[in-house]
Each structure stands twice: as structure tokens, then as C-alpha cells.
């Protein structure tokens, strides 16, 4: 049987990769991908705890809600990105700092 630890380690690796992606990419869409990686690894964590503990279904329920939220977040984020692109003809996050002052 596959151990719970295995899943947790996979999840941890992907989570860290997601953090790395967010920090590394300058492209806003790249950052969005990093966020998706993080959300997925969190989902994996919830579901594996759901499987390996007594409260079987609750973890899955939360994962469902996370998925829905991720979809909503992606839709809004891309709408914002397209707006930025339309105004500025670029998607570089380091150049977007109008709200600083």
C-alpha cells in the first residue's frame, strides 16, 4: 500500500515548485500557473488526509470548493491580465507598479 507520506512529499515538492514559479516568472500568466500548482498541491493534501483519516468526505468537499474558487480566480485574473495587456501592451509584473505612489 502507498503510504500517506508519499502523497505529502509529492504535495510538498509541487507546492515549493509553485512558490518558486511565482517568484521566478516575470510574466503574469506564469505567476498564475504557479498559483494553480500551489492550489493543486493543497488539494492533494486535503484529499490524502481525507483518505487516511476517519473524516473521509470532508477533505474532498473542501477540495471541491477550492477547485471552484480556483476556476473563479483564473477567470477574473485573466480578465484583468487582458485589460492590462490592452492598455500597456505588456504583461510584465515588475513593470506594473502604478499603485506605489
Amino acid at each position: 500500500m502507498i503510504q500517506l507520506n508519499t502523497f505529502l512529499i509529492i504535495s510538498a515538492i509541487v507546492f515549493s515548485t509553485g512558490i518558486f514559479t511565482i517568484l521566478y516568472k516575470k510574466n503574469v500568466i506564469g505567476i498564475l500557473m504557479g498559483v494553480e500548482l500551489i492550489l493543486n498541491s493543497v488539494n492533494l493534501n486535503f484529499i490524502s488526509f481525507a483518505k487516511y483519516s476517519d473524516a473521509q468526505i470532508n477533505g474532498q468537499m473542501i477540495a471541491i470548493f477550492i477547485m471552484i474558487l480556483a476556476a473563479a480566480e483564473a477567470a477574473i485574473a485573466l480578465a484583468i491580465i487582458l485589460n492590462i495587456y490592452r492598455d500597456r501592451a505588456m504583461v510584465d509584473v515588475t513593470l506594473i507598479d502604478e499603485m506605489k505612489n
Partner: peptide, 15 residues
């Protein structure tokens, strides 16, 4: 592998 058949399908459809 985690008995989440519905979520697996949802993952494919949503993500």
C-alpha cells in the same frame, strides 16, 4: 489512488 473518483473527473473537467 485516494478514492476521489469524482474529484479526479472534476479535476480534468475544471482544470
Amino acid at each position: 489512488y485516494l478514492s476521489a473518483d469524482f474529484l479526479s473527473m472534476a479535476q480534468i473537467m475544471i482544470y
